[in-house]
Deep mutational scan, measured.
Amino acid sequence: MQIFVKTLTGKTITLEVEPSDTIENVKAKIQDKEGIPPDQQRLIFAGKQLEDGRTLSDYNIQKESTSHLVLR
């Protein structure tokens, strides 16, 4: 499924993911596309910070959901 990640600069990154993917996996995909190390990434969805060990389905992130990327 596709999800979108919006950066603070207003850029939207499109990612191909599975509901069973962990947040860690998603951060690795963002690193592949954008070159941002996962330890600098914070992903926010529905006002919550997403934890590495959880999956997209844990957070009820469905296709075409948009989460926000904040850099630390």
Rank of each mutant, 00 (worst) to 15 (best):
M1D: 02
M1W: 13
M1I: 11
Q2V: 15
I3E: 01
I3R: 00
I3A: 01
I3M: 05
I3Y: 02
I3P: 00
I3K: 00
F4T: 08
F4W: 08
F4A: 06
V5Q: 00
V5E: 00
V5H: 01
V5M: 03
V5Y: 03
K6V: 14
K6T: 13
T7K: 04
T7M: 15
L8F: 13
L8R: 11
L8I: 12
L8H: 14
T9H: 13
T9W: 14
G10E: 04
G10P: 02
G10K: 03
G10F: 04
G10I: 02
G10A: 03
K11H: 12
K11C: 08
K11T: 08
K11M: 09
T12R: 07
T12E: 06
T12H: 07
I13Q: 01
I13D: 00
T14D: 05
T14Q: 10
T14V: 13
L15E: 00
L15M: 04
L15D: 00
E16A: 08
E16I: 14
E16T: 13
E16D: 12
E16N: 12
E16K: 09
E16F: 13
E16V: 13
V17A: 05
V17S: 02
V17N: 00
V17P: 00
V17E: 00
E18F: 14
E18D: 12
E18C: 11
E18R: 14
P19T: 08
S20T: 13
S20M: 11
S20A: 08
S20R: 08
D21S: 08
D21L: 05
D21G: 02
D21H: 05
D21V: 04
T22M: 07
T22C: 04
T22L: 11
I23K: 00
I23R: 00
I23S: 01
E24Y: 14
E24P: 02
E24V: 07
E24M: 13
N25P: 00
N25W: 09
V26W: 01
K27W: 03
K27L: 05
K27V: 02
K27F: 03
K27G: 01
A28S: 11
A28I: 13
A28V: 12
A28R: 15
A28E: 09
K29T: 03
K29Q: 10
K29M: 13
K29N: 03
I30C: 01
I30P: 00
I30A: 01
I30W: 01
I30T: 01
I30H: 00
I30L: 07
Q31K: 09
Q31L: 08
Q31F: 15
Q31N: 09
D32C: 08
D32V: 13
D32F: 12
K33L: 13
K33R: 10
K33A: 12
E34P: 01
E34T: 15
E34R: 04
G35I: 02
G35E: 03
G35R: 05
G35N: 07
G35Y: 03
G35T: 03
I36H: 07
I36F: 10
P37M: 06
P37G: 04
P37T: 06
P37D: 07
P37Q: 06
P37A: 09
P37L: 07
P37V: 06
P38E: 07
P38C: 09
P38M: 15
P38T: 14
P38F: 12
D39E: 13
D39P: 06
D39K: 10
D39I: 09
Q40S: 08
Q40N: 09
Q40P: 02
Q40F: 08
Q40H: 10
Q40I: 10
Q41C: 06
Q41P: 01
Q41T: 05
Q41E: 01
R42Y: 13
R42F: 14
R42G: 06
R42V: 15
L43W: 03
L43N: 00
L43Y: 02
L43G: 00
L43K: 00
L43S: 00
I44A: 05
F45I: 04
F45L: 08
F45H: 11
A46P: 01
A46V: 06
A46H: 14
A46Q: 15
A46S: 09
K48T: 13
K48Q: 14
K48I: 15
K48R: 11
K48G: 05
K48N: 09
Q49C: 13
Q49N: 12
L50G: 02
L50N: 01
L50H: 01
L50F: 02
L50K: 00
E51K: 08
E51W: 05
E51F: 06
D52I: 05
D52E: 08
G53A: 10
G53D: 11
G53V: 07
G53S: 11
G53I: 06
G53C: 08
G53W: 13
R54K: 14
R54V: 05
R54P: 03
R54A: 08
R54N: 10
T55H: 05
T55C: 06
L56S: 00
L56Y: 01
L56E: 01
L56K: 00
L56G: 00
S57K: 12
S57G: 10
S57R: 12
D58G: 03
D58S: 12
D58M: 05
D58V: 03
D58T: 04
Y59I: 04
Y59S: 03
Y59C: 03
Y59V: 03
N60D: 10
N60F: 06
N60Y: 06
I61H: 02
I61P: 02
Q62F: 14
Q62R: 11
Q62M: 12
Q62L: 11
K63I: 09
E64Q: 10
E64P: 06
E64K: 06
E64T: 10
S65G: 10
S65A: 09
S65F: 10
S65C: 08
T66R: 08
T66I: 13
T66A: 10
T66G: 10
T66N: 11
S67A: 15
S67Q: 10
S67T: 15
S67V: 15
S67F: 15
S67Y: 13
H68I: 15
H68G: 06
L69R: 02
L69Y: 02
L69H: 02
L69F: 06
L69K: 02
V70H: 14
V70G: 04
V70R: 06
L71D: 05
L71W: 06
L71I: 10
L71H: 06
R72T: 14
R72V: 15
